[in-house]
């Protein structure tokens, strides 16, 4: 039983080490891409915590990503706080919004939960447009150069430097990956999976399932918020596109592709989809066609995704 845990831990550390090593060999273009992918994969990991390990399908995660994005971006832009405080504010915004939405939306389940989260997220998106005086709406705004430089003791960080940016993105992803890994192996993770499998039965084992679902949503919101905040600070752009429905659908797609309920699935799904879209957009502006086709094919013929299939066929120890 515990050799599986050790093997899984080694695999995770190896993946992180590999990602660290990649920065020294990748050409500039892919180096930049991978930094972005790592932030988006962190977002997907947060989404997967809810869908994969708790069984709740949200169609409104864009509002949580955007809470982090705007929380950090507006704090830096309007209040002039430094990057680290901006990040903290972003994480807290994601967390707070997730808890507030959860207290209402988690009274529903299944299809109703999907629609309620979709509606809340749409309201959040419209809110970013309504307050265009601060957010500059669709157009968005770029963070000032100075706000992305940061001094801790004698260490000086410049988040616009590609190397620094890559390693911060990797740090974020590593934290999210290991946090989900530890969580799903913990007693709490066991309860979450039990809720996914059979909520009624879980109640009859003495668990107040609402609290656990709220906890999962809160953790998912904090991670999504962290990803959003990191995106704003590392790539210096904040715009309402990131609050639109599309950014609720994308993490669903990444997680479905990589494997629902696998810790490494979100990374694999994000990498593949990012590059597929990248290649396709070289040929057509209708690259979202790919997103549609992928969604339909995944639910139709490949519901377990890549790592889910690997786990079922060859490696049952995969977390």
């Amino acid at each position: 039983m515990h050799t599986g845990t050790r093997r899984a831990l080694l695999l995770h550390l190896a993946v992180l080490a590999g990602l660290f090593a990649l920065q020294f060999v990748l050409p500039d273009y892919h180096h930049r891409n991978l930094a972005r992918i790592l932030v988006l994969a962190s977002y997907a990991a947060g989404y997967n915590l809810l869908l994969g390990y708790t069984g709740l399908l949200s169609l409104g995660h864009a509002m949580l990503f955007a809470a982090g994005l705007y929380g950090a971006g507006l704090a830096v832009q309007l209040l002039g706080v430094n990057a680290a405080s901006g990040f903290a504010i972003g994480v807290l915004s994601g967390l707070a919004l997730a808890v507030a939405v959860g207290l209402v939306a988690l009274r529903t389940s299944g299809v109703a939960f999907m629609i309620v989260t979709l509606m809340f997220s749409q309201a959040a998106f419209l809110t970013t447009l309504y307050f265009a005086a601060f957010t500059r709406g669709d157009e968005g705004f770029v963070l000032p150069e100075a706000s992305r430089q940061y001094q801790i003791g004698s260490f000086f960080f410049d988040l616009s430097d590609p190397g620094t940016r890559y390693n911060f993105a990797l740090l974020l992803f590593a934290a999210c990956l290991m946090a989900t890994f530890v969580l799903v192996r913990s007693p709490i993770g066991r309860v979450l999976v039990a809720i996914r499998e059979n909520e009624q039965r879980t109640t009859m084992l003495g668990y107040h399932t609402f609290r656990y679902k709220l906890l999962a949503l809160a953790a998912s919101g904090a991670i999504s918020g962290a990803a959003g905040a990191a995106y704003a600070l590392l790539f210096s752009y904040v715009g309402s596109t990131f609050a639109s429905i599309q950014y609720s659908i994308l993490p669903l797609l990444w997680v479905l592709l990589g494997g629902v309920g696998t810790t490494l699935g979100p990374l694999i799904g994000t990498v593949l989809m990012f590059y597929l879209v990248d290649v396709i957009s070289g040929y057509t502006s209708a690259y979202l066609l790919l997103v549609g086709v992928a969604l339909v094919l995944l639910v139709l013929v490949f519901p377990k995704g890549i790592l889910g299939t690997v786990r079922a066929k060859a490696a049952p120890w995969l977390p």
Binding site: L59, T284, A286, L289, V296, V299, L300
Partner: peptide, 22 residues
């Protein structure tokens, strides 16, 4: 199946929209 159908119709949304764009 309710949840799978929603995801599939989201896919359908993108397919129709992007085909029209093309």
């Amino acid at each position: 199946a309710p949840e799978a159908t929603i995801v599939a119709t989201i896919g359908l949304l993108y397919i129709l929209q992007q085909l029209v764009l093309t």
